[in-house]
Design a protein around this nucleic acid. Structure first.
Lengths: 232, 232
DNA sequence: ATGTGTGAAGTGCTTCACAGCG
DNA sequence: CGCTGTGAAGCACTTCACACAT
């Protein structure tokens, strides 16, 4: 019995993010021309947990062969299908400032499965132009038209925090079902729209905490640092 | 009894990331000239959980007044201290490509508490130059010297995945104790160095999963969408 | 023999609900 | 009274360990 759908309960984000990670590992293995791999070996190579790999995959079906392991090519194909990367997803970037432009040009963004079709802004000096790789910059008022016409699935929000709520609402009104928000602000939107936040400020500030607390905790030079056991 | 240190156990990242979020909310309240706020009211305004706010704060001490709530100004000051934002943190960005340059110019990055002192790269066409706001681009071979001289605390890694491991090791060898990694690859480094990953590929791919699974789950047009109750 | 798939145990995070203080 | 701070309960995620398939 090979289910490709999760049983009934919704799949946690932690699992889907790890699936993406596993897919990356399989890419690497394919590059190394490895045909078959066990969860143990995979875990060892990429510093993951073998039990977790098996559990995560088991959410979606049975992909392994007992006594052998997983076929790299098959599992990769399955993960691509599960993640919905076997059809191109149309992406727009809203906000053609430093960050938006950088994301549009960023190689890793235009990867297999995602296609950035336009940037949007309202500044007269930007609208009508294009970024380095030729992606056009359109006026935000055209968002709905473009979104409907091209079936845009993801909007990347690279605008200042003050306007991100209204921009998110515009994207939702245009029928775009998923948002990737880079502004340092939480947006509120009906739950039918998926939102993911990439909040640099929070990342930096929580790193600052780690720094502050190790400064507080280890002020004595030469103090023994607890070693982590060798990946038990 | 007002402890500012956590009891004994290490503080989870989830808590510190929320502290940063609370700090942002307090900024907003201060702008609105609110002097005092209860955990309930705070939770309602910003869509958080009041019990969680109290628990999170209780990790570090007693900051509230029973029957009243929290002083916005006092709590803000306490959070800034706990997060270690009351001293400037020196930041370097390694990789002066699209992303690195954008981050260097990005306003929200140069915020209170963080100062970007240099970018590093190895491309002859970039080294010796500067980004728009004047931050210089230095050769990577100077990293250790600069890190030691200026007491750099955070390195932002904005380099391709293929080289991020070696760059991370160089940063660690230069004595930089915290890394913010933008490359789509996990880095391995001794646990004395704090690492945080901002992995756009994983974020995008897990959004793709959400899209694929709602497409699978709701193929019937006109199907009733479950409404969330009005924040009970 | 080998390694998956999975119930059960373990761990950690969140929410509840209330004692106690102002 | 109102609200904090906090044990206890509830829930979610991870790890263990082994039956079973090949």
């Amino acid at each position: 019995m090979k289910r490709r759908q999760p049983r009934g309960n919704p799949v946690s984000d932690l699992i889907t993010q790890r699936l993406s990670l596993y897919l990356r590992c399989l890419d690497e293995l394919e590059r190394r021309e490895v045909a078959t791999i066990s969860s143990h070996h995979l875990a060892e190579l990429f510093h993951l947990s073998s039990a977790q790999i098996r559990k995560d995959l088991a959410t979606f079906g049975e992909f392994g062969v007992r006594g052998v392991g997983y076929s790299v090519a098959d599992l990769k194909r399955s993960l691509i299908h599960i993640l919905g990367l076997d059809r191109d997803l149309k992406v727009v970037i809203i906000g053609a400032g430093n960050l938006g432009m950088a994301l549009a040009d960023y190689g890793g963004f235009n990867r297999e499965g995602f296609r950035i079709i336009a940037l949007f802004d309202v500044a007269p000096g930007k609208v009508g132009g294009a970024c380095r790789n030729g992606t056009p910059i359109l006026h935000l008022s055209e968002l709905e038209k473009v979104a409907q016409r091209d079936g845009v699935q993801i909007a990347v929000l690279a605008v200042p925090a003050e306007v991100v709520q209204s921009v998110a609402e515009a994207a939702a009104a245009a029928g775009i079902p998923a948002l990737l928000n880079f502004a340092p602000a939480r947006i509120r939107i009906p739950p039918a729209v998926s939102v993911r936040n990439v909040d640099l400020k929070i990342q930096l500030e929580s790193l600052a905490f780690r720094l502050a607390s190790t400064r507080r905790a280890v002020p004595v030079p030469g103090k023994r640092v607890r070693r982590r056991p060798p990946t038990p």
